[in-house]
Design a protein around this nucleic acid. Structure first.
Length: 350
DNA sequence: TCTGGGGTCCTCAATCCC
DNA sequence: TCTGGGGATTGAGGACCC
């Protein structure tokens, strides 16, 4: 979906159309969640940018607090349209999904129709990328933003992106880009030309092979409908770093309460209870403990989390505190999703 | 200018068991 | 009895994504 959160807000307030709109929290440490295309163009505002920076660059923009209930509802409407039109829909976050269109006679016409339906029923626009794999569909969808539809084959991608940075590949972030550059690799063509053994040496066998195949736009990741929840967490970044153990413990109990409430609502029970602490110098520390029986009981989660915090006893001011539960007993054996004889898969992404 | 919250997946080390 | 190789599980940390 295009600038999803901002677009949902604009749907409620059409009078703001054409103006730069930024969705972000209000605290001193808030970051930008979404910026409308006007805000992006005018001042280069993008998500994850500190809200304070955005406000300084563009004081006259419209700043709105996020309304996740509205986004969830809008997302539900969009995904309903997709599911009505395709058998295999993999939802990735609130504003992104992959459709497996293997065997569909005319993917392009089909997607035009679906995008039009989304627009008609929700008033929101999306960008569509159609290609031979999940990864390529995602990359392709970026080309048409906003509200575009682009079809690209693997062959075309090899040519078109040869001189692009390896960072184009989803899953290759700033750290990996820097590491590759240190090896003299600045483009996808250079990455593809590199001996896989050298990559495996630098990145480990798995990651090395993965990088090399992705540089050639090879990807056979199937599109799966069901995504099992692996963990759930609640965390808070304090407006001002917290120093006292007692204050930390009070926050931790609140967080545990909140987490258990949400877990109970979803009827999830897990065995591994963990805490996460971010110190003022940005170091992250996690501690966890696995109990015998799956639980979401505050009477179990609370004390375990508290024990973990006491045992760690942070020696520096704390910026962020979180609680996490993982190790859910998977309700049933993950059913064998038939390996896709992927001829044509399609991604529809933000 | 000073970096959210909610996740997933991977790696590596330690430990236990067969 | 000694030795070693796996596999599974746990725990910590980190990269990355929406």
């Amino acid at each position: 979906m295009d600038a999803f959160y901002a677009s949902v807000e604009l749907r409620q307030r059409p009078e703001l159309r054409g103006k730069p709109v930024v969705v972000c929290g209000s605290g001193p440490r808030a970051v930008v969640t979404t910026a409308s295309y006007e805000a992006r163009k005018l001042a280069g505002i993008h998500s994850a940018m500190p809200a304070a920076v955005a406000r300084r660059r563009l004081p006259d923009a419209i700043y709105l607090p996020p309304d996740f209930n509205a986004y969830r509802e809008a997302s539900g409407q969009v995904m309903a349209v997709l599911r009505r039109n395709a058998e295999t829909v993999e939802v990735v976050g609130l504003d992104e999904a992959y459709l497996d269109l293997t065997g569909i006679f005319s993917p392009k016409a089909t997607m035009r129709r679906i995008a039009a339906q989304i627009k008609e029923e929700t008033g929101l626009t999306c960008s569509v990328g159609i290609s031979e794999s999940r990864m390529l569909a995602k990359i392709t969808s970026e080309l048409g933003k906003p509200a575009g539809l682009v079809v690209l084959s693997r062959e075309q991608a090899l040519e078109r992106f040869a001189a692009d940075s390896p960072g184009l590949i989803p899953g290759v972030g700033p750290k990996s880009v820097a590491k590759l550059e240190a090896m003299g690799i600045r483009t996808l063509a250079q990455l593809r030309a590199r001996d896989p053994v050298a990559l495996e040496h630098a990145f480990g066998p798995r990651q090395g092979r993965w990088l090399h195949s992705r540089a050639g736009f090879e990807d056979e990741t199937p599109i799966t409908v069901v995504r099992e929840t692996k963990s759930q967490s609640t965390e808070i970044t304090f407006d001002v770093d917290v120093r006292g153990q007692a204050e930390l413990e009070a926050h931790l109990e609140q967080l545990a309460e909140e987490l258990c409430r949400r877990l109970a609502k979803r009827q999830l029970e897990g065995r591994t209870i963990g805490i996460k602490v971010r110190l003022d110098d940005w170091t992250n520390v996690s501690r966890s403990h696995t109990v015998e029986q799956p639980t979401n009981d505050l009477a179990v989660v609370g004390p375990v989390a508290l024990d973990l915090l006491r045992a760690y006893a942070p020696q520096r001011p704390v910026r962020l505190l979180g609680v996490r539960l993982a190790g859910f007993d998977s309700g049933e054996a993950p059913e064998a999703n038939e390996p896709p004889e992927a001829q044509m898969q399609l991604g529809l992404t933000a």
